[in-house]
Design a protein around this nucleic acid. Structure first.
Lengths: 141, 141
DNA sequence: TTTTATGCAAACCGTTTGCAGAATC
DNA sequence: GATTCTGCAAACGGTTTGCATAAAA
């Protein structure tokens, strides 16, 4: 499921951008994460793994990966943008309004709606972002 | 549909907060808008109408109105939060990725899903944010 | 060796906070 | 007259930009 080093290199090369350690590290990290990650969190996790990258570079790397169509910005709730790899299966999240913890869901049946929107609104390239919020069991107490 | 001055006063008083010109102006403006507005846009519109209010006060007013349950934060796409009055009919938007223009939609059938989520995830007070993105007809050219 | 990416410092923009004066009750 | 709100200035946090150095092609 998660692409290994060589596959990442190939994906980047295919898009005509240079293969660098920063891009490898960030993409690898996102590939291995079930949840969308913020730039700050990526910075922290890479630091903990002894692979520190400047936060500015992380932002530029995320922008590059997004332009290459490898990742996407999930949403921007309290803190800031969170990023995730674009995968075949389309996921949604439920996020606790108190502690920010998130769990992935496995439902999405909005593609039909998107198709009808293309006809009725004149918009093209329609995509959507669906997010549920609530209070998780831990925070209820 | 849009509450007039007296109704707004009553709504505020009912919540036990003071009735002020700023709150009246901001709530009146949001009540008359079909689309969610950002704090900056509210500032601009009030300025144009000759009813300038300090941007800081607008933020505090929005927070107050939100705490009173009169308005809600819609989403936070490129610029920042956008606010809208809470109304009985639940709306979603489609937003152009190019120019940021938004059109309201009139579909939402996710309440059933929310109810089943309450049972399966243990979350309570579940709400959702659903947003469609695409390229509008104007930007396609 | 040419081109592109990185790190550092500093700017930027939306939002929040502290505090004195003004408005509401 | 007591309490709450407003405006101004300044701080804050996430993100972006400029520029010299380092790495990839």
């Amino acid at each position: 499921m998660e692409p290994d080093g060589d596959q990442i290199d190939a994906l980047l090369r295919l898009r005509g951008v240079r293969v660098t350690q920063a891009r490898r590290s960030v993409f690898e990290l996102l590939s291995g994460s079930a949840l969308p990650l913020s730039a700050a969190r990526i910075d922290e996790m890479l630091g903990n793994a002894g692979r520190s990258i400047d936060l500015v570079t992380i932002y530029r790397t995320l922008e590059t990966l997004e332009r290459c169509g490898l990742i996407t910005r999930a949403d921007r709730f309290n803190e800031g943008w969170r990023y995730m790899v674009i995968s075949r299966e389309h996921h949604h999240m439920i996020v606790c309004s108190e502690c920010g913890s998130a769990s992935p869901l496995d439902v999405c049946d909005l593609n039909r709606i998107e198709q009808s929107l293309e006809r009725t609104t004149g918009f093209t390239n329609i995509r959507h972002s669906l997010q549920f919020y609530g209070i998780c069991a831990g925070c209820r107490r």
